[in-house]
């Protein structure tokens, strides 16, 4: 059963989509945070520990990456999910492979940010369509609009995950096998050094929170 799930990219892409939908579309239960979604993927792929460590690194370094107002930061769930997926699928248990996954996941997170902005623009058009319907007294189109918005989000995120898990996986595996030894050794060191940087980022953020409460 575990091998069937870990090999089933479509299923894992769907689970990842549900996690990413939590960012704004539904709930905000924080299942999109990497400390939860990376171990979740790790659980399905048979290695919770590595997923947890990746999630912890991403959570600390990108601790202040949350959509506030009109700001659209990179989706941190993508970083945790993609790196855990690639590592567990191709080089299970290797710390350097997990760090290489993180290195490669950042450009994918930026790519997704563009897709997300496109989706929010599409929502504006949908909102105008709903407004015209409401002017005609057709209120059921509010529900239909919300359903279409959620559906469109899920479809675009799902397709993105399928694309990045498969195409990104090829790139990931191909480049990793060509990496020189000293780079891999550097990644091994980064596995233990990145949490230290995460603590540095958190210490810096304390200053910002304190300023928030002063006002």
């Amino acid at each position: 059963m575990t091998s069937f799930i870990s090999g089933n990219t479509i299923f894992l892409a769907f689970i990842s989509t549900l996690c990413s939908a939590d960012v704004i579309t539904m709930g905000q239960f924080m299942i999109y945070r990497p400390i939860f979604c990376a171990p979740l993927l790790g659980f399905f792929m048979g290695d919770v520990s590595i997923g947890l460590w990746i999630g912890m690194i991403v959570e600390m370094i990108w601790i202040n990456a949350a959509p506030i107002g009109i700001a659209v930061p990179i989706d941190v769930s993508i970083l945790g999910i993609l790196s855990t997926f690639w590592m567990c699928k191709y080089f299970k248990g290797l710390h350097e492979a997990a760090i290489w996954g993180l290195v490669l996941a950042v450009p994918f997170a930026y790519l997704y940010r563009l897709v997300d902005i496109f989706g929010r623009d599409f929502n504006t058009k949908l909102m105008h369509w709903i407004e015209r319907r409401v002017q005609n007294g057709e209120y059921r189109y509010i529900n239909i609009g919300i359903f279409v918005g959620v559906f469109f989000f899920i479809v675009k995120t799902f397709l993105f995950y399928v694309f990045s898990m498969i195409v990104g996986g090829w790139i990931y595996r191909f480049i990793y096998l060509e990496l020189p030894t000293f780079v891999l050794k550097g990644f091994q060191k980064a596995w233990y050094l990145l949490p230290v940087c995460g603590f540095g980022m958190v210490m810096f953020n304390f200053r910002k929170i304190k300023r928030l409460f002063k006002h």
């Binding site: 905000q28 909102m127 919300i146």
Partner: peptide, 17 residues
């Protein structure tokens, strides 16, 4: 209320939600 941002848009943000 869990779907308030489902149709978040740049023009009027959470209005449809």
């Amino acid at each position: 209320t869990f779907f308030i941002q489902a149709l978040w848009n740049y023009e009027r943000l959470q209005n449809v939600g």
